[in-house]
Nucleic acid binder design. Structure first.
Length: 203
DNA sequence: TGCCAGGCCCTCTTTAGGGCCTT
């Protein structure tokens, strides 16, 4: 799976910002894309074993009542490891989701083989004129239809997936690259803004 | 109960500080 148009785009809702400080996942959502088409979806609430704060209930719409009946993080993440097996991974601000993926899979002794790319870092370079680079703003900027509620895992992963495909399309149209390797997207994310055009013209 | 992070990126930079993004 070396092509950027075949990836799993994922998004976590969590109890807070840092697994190192004891925060846990409460929902995982993911969309599998193969050759630019959505071919699979994964969504599951998970019980972190303690109450979540009022802030998180308000922010995500996920309540303690909803989590009470949900399966454990271990149960869900074990299954999720199968869903992502063999795919490269994309997330909006990937460093955040990678930390939680590593922490939660570590708890169930599962690993993954794919590499991460960050849609936010790519968007800062490909959509430089967007007012900001929050997921919701970029979705509007790219004219992607959206009717759901942000801050739920499946919806955010689906919007990030469409943003990812939109950026691949923009690169294709602007630079004539229709087969974009995943490695090139990772390289774009690390290239200084002012050098991205040069990188893609020479590719 | 209340608190917390970390990587990127810009600039009035590099012996640093602060905003952006994610929950």
């Amino acid at each position: 799976m070396l092509n950027a148009s075949s990836v799993v785009v994922l998004d976590f809702e969590t109890t807070g910002l840092s697994p190192d400080m004891g925060d846990r996942a409460i929902e995982i959502g993911a969309v599998r894309i193969e050759n630019g088409e959505i071919t699979g979806r994964f969504q599951q609430l998970m019980n972190p074993g303690r109450r979540v704060s009022g802030f998180i209930e308000d922010y995500t719409g996920i309540s303690n009542v909803m989590l009470k009946g949900a399966p454990s993080c271990a149960e869900v993440m074990y299954e999720f490891a199968d869903f992502i097996h063999g795919y490269n991974l994309v997330a909006h601000n990937a460093s955040f989701d990678k930390r939680f993926l590593d922490a939660e899979l570590g708890q169930v002794s599962r690993r993954y083989s794919g590499e991460f790319a960050c849609s936010m870092l790519v968007a800062r370079r490909i959509y430089q004129h967007s007012p900001d680079h929050k997921l919701g703003t970029l979705v509007r900027y790219a004219n992607i239809p959206s009717e759901g509620v942000f801050h739920r895992a499946l919806y955010d992963s689906e919007m990030a997936a469409k943003l990812w495909l939109s950026m691949l399309d923009s690169i294709n149209k602007q630079y004539g690259l229709n087969e974009i390797p995943f490695k090139l997207m990772q390289k774009i994310a690390k290239t200084p803004k002012h050098s991205v055009a040069k990188l893609l013209k020479l590719y």
